[in-house]
Simulated assay, not measured.
Amino acid sequence: MPGPHDHGGGRPRRDPRSGQPTLRDVAERAGVSAMTASRVLRDDPQVLPATRERVRAAAAALGYRPNEVARSLRLGRGTGLVGLVVTNLANPFYSRLALGVDSVVARHGLKTVIGNTGQDPGAERELVADLLARRVDGIIAVPAGADQRHLAAAAADGVPVVLASRPPEGFAADCVLVDDFGGAHAATARLLARGHRRIGFLGSPPAVYTGTERLRGYAAALASAGLAADPGLVRQGQTEPEEATRAAAGLLALPDPPTALFCSNNRNTIGAFRALRAAEGGAAVALAGFDDFELADALGLALTLVAYDSDEVGRAAGRLLADRLHAGGGVGAPGEPRQIVVPTSLVEYGA
Results as ranks from 00 to 15, higher is better:
residue 257 P to H: 07
residue 258 P to M: 04
residue 259 T to H: 04
residue 259 T to V: 00
residue 259 T to P: 04
residue 259 T to F: 02
residue 259 T to I: 08
residue 260 A to C: 05
residue 260 A to I: 11
residue 260 A to K: 06
residue 261 L to K: 00
residue 261 L to N: 02
residue 262 F to K: 12
residue 262 F to S: 11
residue 262 F to V: 10
residue 262 F to E: 06
residue 262 F to W: 03
residue 263 C to V: 04
residue 263 C to E: 03
residue 263 C to D: 08
residue 263 C to G: 05
residue 264 S to R: 10
residue 265 N to Q: 10
residue 265 N to D: 15
residue 266 N to G: 14
residue 267 R to D: 11
residue 267 R to H: 14
residue 267 R to F: 15
residue 268 N to V: 09
residue 269 T to Y: 11
residue 270 I to W: 11
residue 270 I to A: 09
residue 270 I to S: 03
residue 270 I to E: 11
residue 272 A to N: 08
residue 273 F to Q: 14
residue 274 R to P: 05
residue 275 A to L: 04
residue 276 L to R: 04
residue 276 L to D: 08
residue 276 L to I: 03
residue 277 R to E: 15
residue 277 R to Y: 07
residue 277 R to A: 11
residue 278 A to S: 09
residue 278 A to K: 09
residue 278 A to V: 07
residue 278 A to D: 03
residue 279 A to C: 06
residue 279 A to L: 04
residue 280 E to S: 14
residue 280 E to Y: 00
residue 280 E to H: 12
residue 281 G to T: 12
residue 282 G to T: 12
residue 282 G to A: 07
residue 282 G to K: 03
residue 283 A to Y: 06
residue 283 A to E: 13
residue 284 A to L: 12
residue 285 V to Q: 05
residue 286 A to W: 05
residue 286 A to V: 05
residue 287 L to P: 04
residue 287 L to R: 01
residue 288 A to P: 10
residue 290 F to N: 01
residue 290 F to H: 15
residue 290 F to V: 00
residue 291 D to G: 05
residue 291 D to L: 13
residue 291 D to K: 01
residue 291 D to M: 06
residue 291 D to Y: 05
residue 291 D to F: 02
residue 291 D to C: 04
residue 292 D to P: 07
residue 294 E to Y: 15
residue 294 E to P: 12
residue 295 L to S: 14
residue 297 D to L: 14
residue 298 A to R: 15
residue 298 A to Y: 12
residue 298 A to D: 13
residue 298 A to I: 13
residue 299 L to R: 07
residue 299 L to M: 07
residue 299 L to E: 13
residue 301 L to I: 15
residue 302 A to E: 15
residue 302 A to V: 01
residue 302 A to G: 10
residue 303 L to N: 11
residue 303 L to E: 01
residue 304 T to D: 15
residue 304 T to R: 09
residue 304 T to S: 13
residue 305 L to T: 08
residue 306 V to M: 08
residue 306 V to C: 07
residue 307 A to K: 14
residue 307 A to Q: 14
residue 307 A to L: 06
residue 308 Y to P: 02
residue 309 D to M: 09
residue 309 D to L: 04
residue 309 D to W: 10
residue 310 S to V: 01
residue 311 D to I: 06
residue 311 D to H: 02
residue 311 D to E: 07
residue 311 D to S: 03
residue 313 V to Q: 02
residue 314 G to N: 03
residue 314 G to V: 09
residue 315 R to N: 00
residue 315 R to T: 09
residue 315 R to V: 12
residue 316 A to M: 12
residue 316 A to S: 15
residue 317 A to Q: 02
residue 317 A to N: 09
residue 317 A to P: 08
residue 317 A to D: 06
residue 318 G to F: 01
residue 318 G to C: 00
residue 319 R to S: 09
residue 319 R to Q: 06
residue 320 L to M: 10
residue 320 L to S: 07
residue 320 L to Q: 12
residue 321 L to R: 04
residue 322 A to L: 06
residue 323 D to P: 07
residue 323 D to L: 00
residue 323 D to C: 08
residue 324 R to V: 08
residue 324 R to I: 00
residue 324 R to A: 05
residue 325 L to C: 10
residue 325 L to V: 15
residue 325 L to K: 07
residue 326 H to A: 14
residue 327 A to F: 10
residue 327 A to N: 08
residue 327 A to L: 07
